[in-house]
Design a binder for these strands. Structure first.
Lengths: 342, 342
DNA sequence: GGGATCGATGGGAACGGTTCCACACCGACC
DNA sequence: GGTCGGTGTGGAACCGTTCCCATCGATCCC
């Protein structure tokens, strides 16, 4: 209701001076600055971001594109990004890119192409050229976290190296019959990440002169959930003859499912079956799951820092380019892995 | 870049006619409507929502205030709400209200008071009068889901009745030594919901002429996570003498933790200990957890429908007022509950 | 002492739409 | 045949800011 004109009138100055006083840009004497501030407080003035962004072109709003919000990894990323954006005075607009096809196009053409966000953080999705263009052409920075997009800065853990690391852990324990439960990427979720982890698995297995072991060539695709891991686990472990002694699961949730399947089948973990996961899920410790941890909440924060830099919001931080900081992972050994039975 | 003026010029009409043609309001002949539409498509015209909301006062944007995004319940709500808003052509701006205190004030005074959202959905938080006012005074509808706010429409499951239902299930199985793991509400999370579930527990226990059983008077507060349930479970089950035969956990995650604690202590579920949860978590089925299901994804969708009605977006749906549809819950009996040992 | 510079301020044109109002045209009705 | 109401269109005001430009007094330097 109260516009800046009212503030100006009450303070006895012009609209322009009031604007300068409130925004802090340009010359304003200390005394009038106070008068304006007092007047604003008195009538409960709240600036209209719409009007401001209409003329400045900046919205103080960042869009986040994400395939799920109810999965652990993505929830964590969102949590971290939200906190960082709030601290920077930015709003966070959420775009759920669950499905492929027309719905996905709509998000890009209808929602993101409009001048409503200053930048976009894409989490866990693979963007194609057109999609990057439709955002980038309008001058908006775009940062990709855990996915891919041609020409856009990419922020990710080294999934291939991490997949190798997980597999090597099993190999070092002496396992020779190792299977992999690869993550399925339904809908719009990034296939690239899953592919890299699987490649890391193959790298390590082949480097050790081994072959993936188990039914279906030792690699089964599982939905990245506990039920997904459970049913894939039943499939993998169902045939005693072809049973591997160790499994690298593409996510901790899959790993939980496998452990549950093993329990159901009477296969002891880790004495008869070693299981290693990927993620550092909050439940991993309680289930004693060995895993390659990553830190999605930090990743969300880092993606925001990246975006702020692109928007010129971090005056002093020009030193550290994004490329210099690969996202960290760490192997955490717990009680779900041990040497193979003899 | 391309403004409506350019479209108008290309189509050979005035700005006003172009606006009418594109928005569909007012009289425009079919032929000019087509010409304008073609012109818009040709130069890739995209309307500026900022300019539009500056004059109309509507932003086509709904704010969601939520204490966590990385907890199952909230993630589901968000997922449901996002989908519904997207379908309605609305943006969703996320406000994480994790902490109490100055940060919380900031969300309301700085972010929500501005004219950037048309309505607010508050999930799982208790709002005070001032907070409702600062939003409501500016004419914005506010809907509260699973929390409370004075004067605002409240959408929630009947937590008290559901808590009673869960407890009665245990009583009907013959249990007389029943404990309750109540949910803690850290930070900004709604205390009201947890209190209601606990009251439901007491209702049922007292109605059966029983008293809560177990250490600390049979009611222990647990953080609403698996680790939280685990440590509360150890505490509750640690003393064999004072051990209850059944536990009603305020959430499924707590229940999982209790089951894990029981396993650790060598207490068989359900033969030595029955466990019932609350939520309908996606993992409940795999863990065989008896629970009172609720449907947060639906709840998110329903909250959006409510908001759309308040914004006058649902022309035909004036019949069903929000108060007519209590959110549904359902007792789902699985293998974690049975008659007490004798 | 006069032009240059600086600090402080006001006027007014944008930004990109929507919408009120006036006007013109048309068929219809009494 | 004049009035009336429904269509179609253009002109212009307006939403609430920012920011460029002009103005103006004071200080300053040569």
């Amino acid at each position: 209701m109260a516009a800046i004109t009212d503030v100006a009138r009450l303070a006895g100055v012009s609209k322009s001076t009031a604007s300068r006083a409130l925004s802090g840009h340009g010359y304003v004497s200390e005394s009038t600055r106070r008068r304006v501030a007092d007047a604003a407080a008195e009538i409960g003035y709240i600036a209209s971001p719409n009007a401001a962004s209409l003329v400045t072109g900046r919205t103080k709003n960042v869009g986040i594109v994400i395939p799920f919000v109810n999965r652990w990894f993505f929830g964590e990323v969102l949590e971290g990004a939200e906190r960082a954006l709030l601290a920077a005075g930015y709003d966070l607009t959420l775009y759920n890119l669950a499905l492929d096809g027309p719905e996905r196009e709509r998000v890009f053409d209808f929602f993101l192409a409009r001048k409503r966000v200053d930048a976009v953080i894409a989490v866990g999705v693979d963007l194609d050229e057109r999609e990057v263009d439709v955002i980038g052409l309008r001058g908006k920075p775009i940062v990709v976290l855990g996915g891919s997009a041609p020409g856009a800065p990419r922020l990710a853990v080294d999934d291939r190296a991490a997949g190798r690391l997980a597999t090597e852990h099993l190999i070092q324990l002496g396992h020779t019959r190792i299977a992999h439960l690869a993550g399925a990427a339904p809908g719009s979720a990034a296939r690239s990440v899953q592919r890299l982890r699987t490649e890391g698995f193959h790298d390590a297995v082949h480097a050790a002169g081994l072959e993936p072991a188990g039914v279906d060539g030792g690699v089964i695709e599982a939905e990245m959930t506990l039920p997904g891991g459970y049913s894939a686990g039943l499939q993998l472990l169902g045939h005693p003859a072809a049973r591997p002694t160790a499994v690298f699961a593409a996510s901790d949730e899959i790993a939980f499912g496998v452990m549950r399947a093993a329990e159901r089948l009477g296969i002891a973990v880790p004495s008869a079956l070693s299981v290693i996961g990927f993620d550092g899920h909050e439940y991993a410790e309680l289930f004693g799951l060995t895993t390659v941890e990553q830190y999605p909440e930090d990743q969300g924060r880092i993606a925001v820092e990246e975006v702020m830099r692109a928007l010129g919001e971090s005056p002093s931080a020009e030193e550290r380019g994004w490329a210099d900081r690969p996202l960290s992972t760490r192997l955490v050994v717990r009680s779900s892995t041990t040497a193979p039975p003899r």
